[in-house]
Design a protein around this nucleic acid. Structure first.
Lengths: 272, 272
DNA sequence: CAGAGAAACACTCAGCTTGAGAAAAACGGA
DNA sequence: TCCGTTTTTCTCAAGCTGAGTGTTTCTCTG
């Protein structure tokens, strides 16, 4: 950690802290940006596909461009509200200003971006978070936001093998690309796919998560065998779904997420 | 990103930036901390084992305690030196003050820690980096540092299945634990083990990396087969090592790191 | 109410990978 | 030359994977 001393002299730690001036350094702003991913019905009859929550910036800089929701980390209590106790708290606060956040959600830190010049105002270090959630409600407008919407990844060039186009504000295209790649690889060796589903789900719905995030179809029978053979991935509720598919079919069993966090062996996307 | 506006009014983006005051927000400091891991001969005749570079803090706060090397990110040019263009630059600068950094090294971002109260001076957000390197030279003292040394992970409780004891300053025990876990899991599905080795190495040396990082022995013959069967992991130089082991033995082939970044299929530590 | 179609799930099988061990090859030292 | 050591190759049974097929259970249609 820090070796520079902020202008305070030596002596014991108490007197050191009393003489410490936090404003002695060049100002750096810390923000959190959240890549909130969910799987919801796409435009037209294209089935369910991954979406990201985007906001259109209502203020400078980059006014009018789409961006990931974000905001400054509150280091101290301010008129706008109390300080953020930790970075994940800041991420959830920023996100709750845009959409309703129900139940347990999976929030994990993605990466931190701090290159010079990524924000024209000042040196900004941005901690990006990845949120994976089941179908969330439509977003609402927040302060300084013109518009907020769930946007299919496909439309942003992050879909099946697509190259990311430069569309978002700041370096958010890269942040989003990192988020999508993280989600894709986490499906391989963790049970996080269940984070995209409601508490109770079918194996076919689980397979739908993999198929829409990885962008390719999986062998249904083998997937079924593999999921049930992985200890702790899913847990049988003993019940069946109310109805089979629209065109008939056997009523599927209902499962809930099991306790396992990591999958042994993993479910590799590269093979098959 | 940010929605608060730093006191500047509306209008076009140019006049917005002219009126922007970076000091309008509560001060937050951004630091980088580096968990530099290397594999070197341990104390006594215990063979090679993973070490981390630690410094004993020579200044408040936490004076006298061992910590990961770190320092403030330089947002602007200062009398101490020029601004850091990006966070990895800051990490390498901080580390180069403690030890010699030769050749190509593997540096990757680990995580960012920003809980309130983790530093008594002010709100500090710390971006941690993981560095994996072949046997680096002994460290030298830097500004504000009493002592710097390579410390075996085993002595810190991060060894084979050990629970981390509270020994380091700030929350660096947790940072180090995250770093070790990241290194362990990265060996499974990437070819990063070669980052711990010199440019040319033998399969047995490569196995030694896995064994010392994972803390358990691997089946030599199966490891050999698996490495050579993984396309792009290692590349045959066509040469043999000068001498076999101390007590005789066949001269091993020499390899260099191949181009592959990720391993398909992975080398799982859980099985076997 | 029979039959078609659909979905969920079970089963089979060849091919591959894995863990474990044995054997061969290459080397130093006595 | 012979023995112990290290590297490398080989063998084999067990398990997993991908692909395909079959069975069960449902809806819909006529």
């Amino acid at each position: 950690m820090a070796t520079e001393d902020g202008g305070a002299a030596g002596g014991d730690e108490g007197s050191f802290l009393a003489g410490y001036d936090p404003h002695a350094f060049a100002p750096v702003a810390v923000t959190v940006d959240v890549a909130a991913l969910t799987i919801r019905p796409g435009t037209a009859g294209r089935g369910r596909e991954p979406h990201v929550l985007l906001v259109r910036r209502g203020e400078h800089p980059q006014r009018g461009r789409w961006a990931l929701p974000g905001g400054f980390v509150r280091a101290e209590d301010t008129p706008q509200g109390p300080a953020d106790d930790d970075l994940p708290d800041a991420a959830l606060r920023v996100l709750s200003e845009k959409t309703l956040l129900p139940g347990p959600l999976h929030l994990e830190q993605l990466a931190t971006y701090g290159a010079r010049g990524r924000d024209p105002r000042m040196r900004v270090v941005s901690v990006a978070y990845l949120l994976m959630a089941p179908d969330l409600p439509e977003p609402h407008r927040g302060r300084g936001i013109e518009e907020a919407a769930w946007v299919p990844l496909r439309e942003l060039g992050h879909g099946i093998g697509g190259r990311s186009r430069h569309a978002l504000a700041f370096d958010h295209d890269r942040v989003l690309a990192d988020a999508v790649e993280r989600a894709r690889s986490k499906l391989e060796y963790t049970s996080l796919a269940t984070a995209f589903l409601p508490p109770v789900f079918t194996i076919t719905e689980l397979r739908g998560v993999y198929e829409s995030v990885w962008g390719r179809e999986l062998h249904a029978a083998n997937f079924h065998r593999k999921i049930l053979a992985t200890p702790g991935f899913v847990e049988d509720t003993g019940e069946l779904a109310e109805r089979g598919g629209t065109g008939g079919g056997r009523r599927p069993r209902l499962y809930r997420a099991g306790g396992a966090a990591t999958l042994h062996p993993p479910l590799l996307r590269s093979t098959q």
